[in-house]
């Protein structure tokens, strides 16, 4: 998970997707085939496009679905990152950007998953309903490391607000990321690292 400079340089010259030196780099957006290949507890790196959305944006997306309105971006294969970044310093695309607690999105996620937004990045456990929806729709929930936000900001190549600008930090941003480090928390079979990891080390 620790990317030192040498590794970074090595990865830069590698193809956008695949295994390299034990590090698995996934290209986003995702195919069902990729999602099916992921196992809970695997550490992987995401390169490509992800969209930020947290509490307020989720509420709006959910309400727009209820009203059958078009979504601000095509959900197919796309990943949503539960994050509200700190302001960008001059010359930087984004400020510190770590994951927020995913559980607060649980009320909306099954509806969004059914609409096609079935790759999520956040932190913390998910509800049984969300896990069921991942199994039904071949989705995956990744956990980013809470608090490692300065490190993750350095994985962001560009950021652009694409919807709900008035929500400030909670706006939907389209990010281009390179080797964003994440762990497969819940895979499409419903295996949950928060449960299995805890069971393994419980004394």
């Amino acid at each position: 998970m620790n990317i030192n400079k040498k590794d970074k340089d090595r990865i830069t010259s590698s193809p956008p997707s695949g295994d390299l030196g034990g590090k698995r780099i996934l290209s986003a957006p995702f195919t069902d085939e990729t999602i099916r290949s992921l196992k809970s507890g695997d550490m992987v790196y995401i390169s490509g496009t992800v969209y930020t959305a947290r509490d307020a944006a989720h509420k709006r997306l959910y309400e727009m679905i209820q009203r059958s309105e078009p979504m601000p971006f095509d959900f197919k294969g796309q990943a949503v990152y539960y994050a509200g970044p700190a302001p960008a310093k001059p010359g930087k695309p984004i400020g510190s950007v770590g994951p927020t607690t995913s559980g607060r999105m649980d009320a909306y996620s099954p509806t969004l998953i059914a609409e096609g937004l079935k790759v999520m990045i956040g932190k913390g456990t998910r509800s049984a309903e969300v896990i069921d929806a991942l199994k039904t729709h071949t989705g995956v929930y990744f956990a980013a490391i809470g608090g490692a936000a300065a490190l993750m900001a350095n994985c962001v190549l560009s950021a652009e607000v694409i919807a709900f600008d008035e929500l400030g930090t909670e706006a939907i941003r389209k990010l281009e990321v390179k080797e964003l480090p994440v762990v497969v928390a819940v895979d499409c079979q419903g295996n949950d690292v928060y449960e299995s990891g805890r069971d393994m080390y419980k004394l």
């Binding site: 507890g41 932190k123 913390g124 456990t125 956990a143 490391i145 809470g146 762990v183 690292v193 928060y194 299995s196 990891g197 805890r198 069971d199 393994m200 080390y201 419980k202 004394l203």
Partner: peptide, 13 residues
């Protein structure tokens, strides 16, 4: 530390 929650909640001591 016997609960098993671990760093980031992924399991550990």
């Amino acid at each position: 530390n016997k609960l098993g929650i671990g760093p980031a909640g992924f399991g550990g001591t």
